[in-house]
């Protein structure tokens, strides 16, 4: 049986007119309309366009929640295996509608979705992480290539074929890194790249440098004598037995542990599970990583007000920045709620 494909297009490509018809409300036809006819042809025997959903660009943009819901209902009515929207080329409102309906159908119906846009279309930045946006020319003059590339990718998705990297498949990448095998080993690729760089020729890096978020440091503590200070650590010190099963590396979680009444982390009740350093000394005296003993001493001496009753801990080795950022946000909010004034972060 052929796969079922539904196409989403705007009023213009449905042949209803330009701006004057842009407030067209959503409707569906049990046939391919406009570019969907060529898509149906290109899909061949393996897939069929079973319906076209049409909506005016202004209608979608101005009533986004209702438009989204109504279009989704119409799409759902065809029980499709895949949705193709557009292509929208450089049309901004159309790009947003195509991106939005693709992301919605993908999330709610669980089907793959494909659209096409020019790189300057605002839809690219908004939706490229959540749907497949095939790279197109800036106008319908590039229709032929756009439809060819969209249907090629769609058929691969329908058949569950392994995809090559985004640049080879011709879509804007979804912000995901995946391993592939190159023709040449890394050493040869590196020397090739360096020679090009030295000659002033164009070269293509294999990983564009990420931009780090700059975090504005909090203001200094004004009244240290009365401040509550918390200990937070990526050094992997946890209660013995690792009750929360924090991973030894590439951590996906952190733990929060009560240290009220504890003056010293003894190796009988605490241990290090960190996968990135030699734990011999940390396991003889966990305070060397999580210095509860020294903090208690300073607390008693009145150097600061109070050591917070809980410590937060995870393993910081191979842990993805995305996870680390999430831990930081959650721990920070928790500490703020608890009225903690300052934090000492210990790493290894």
């Amino acid at each position: 049986m052929a796969y079922k494909v539904v196409c989403y297009i705007n009023q213009f490509f449905a042949g209803m007119g330009g701006e004057e018809a842009a407030h067209q409300e959503p409707f569906a036809k049990r046939e391919p309309l406009g570019p969907a006819m060529q898509i149906n042809f290109l899909l061949g025997d393996e897939a069929e366009v079973v319906g076209t959903v049409v909506c005016g660009d202004s209608y979608y943009g101005e009533n986004i929640e209702i438009a989204r819901e109504r279009c989704l209902e119409l799409i759902k009515g065809f029980s499709p295996d895949l949705l193709i929207a557009g292509p929208a080329f450089n049309a901004g409102r159309y790009g947003v509608a195509c991106g939005d309906i693709c992301v919605t159908a993908g999330e709610i119906l669980g089907i793959p979705t494909v659209t096409g846009m020019y790189y300057e279309n605002p839809g690219v930045e908004l939706y490229s992480n959540k749907t497949f946006i095939v790279k197109t020319a800036d106008s319908a003059r590039g229709m032929k290539d756009a439809l060819q590339n969209i249907t090629t990718l769609s058929l691969k998705l329908l058949k569950g074929q392994k995809l090559r990297p985004a640049e080879e498949e011709g879509y804007f990448h979804r912000g995901i890194r995946k391993n592939f095998f190159y023709e040449e080993n890394g050493a040869k690729r590196a020397v090739d790249m360096l020679l090009k760089k030295l000659k002033g020729e164009l070269f293509k890096t294999e990983y564009e440098m990420p931009t780090f978020k700059k975090i504005t440091p909090a203001k200094p503590v004004k009244d240290i004598k009365n401040a509550t200070i918390a200990l937070v650590s990526s050094g992997g010190v946890v209660p013995k037995g690792n009750p929360d099963r924090i991973r030894v590396s590439s951590a996906e979680s952190y733990g929060k542990y009560d240290i009220s009444g504890i003056d010293d982390l003894s190796p009988e009740i605490f241990e290090s599970i960190h996968g990135g350093y030699d734990r011999v000394w940390a396991n003889k005296d966990p305070d060397v990583v999580l210095p509860v003993d020294v903090m208690r001493q300073l607390e008693k001496e009145g150097v600061f007000g109070k050591l917070y009753d809980y410590v937060y801990t995870t393993t910081g080795t191979g842990t993805s920045v995305a996870n680390a950022e999430r831990f930081g946000k959650e721990i920070g909010e928790d500490l703020k709620k608890a009225g903690v004034d300052a934090v000492i972060l210990t790493s290894t």
Binding site: R174, K178, F180, F181, N185, G186, A187, E206
Partner: peptide, 10 residues
């Protein structure tokens, strides 16, 4: 760079 593997965008 002993092997041919590399991470690429998808």
């Amino acid at each position: 760079g002993f092997g041919r593997i590399g991470a690429r965008w998808v």
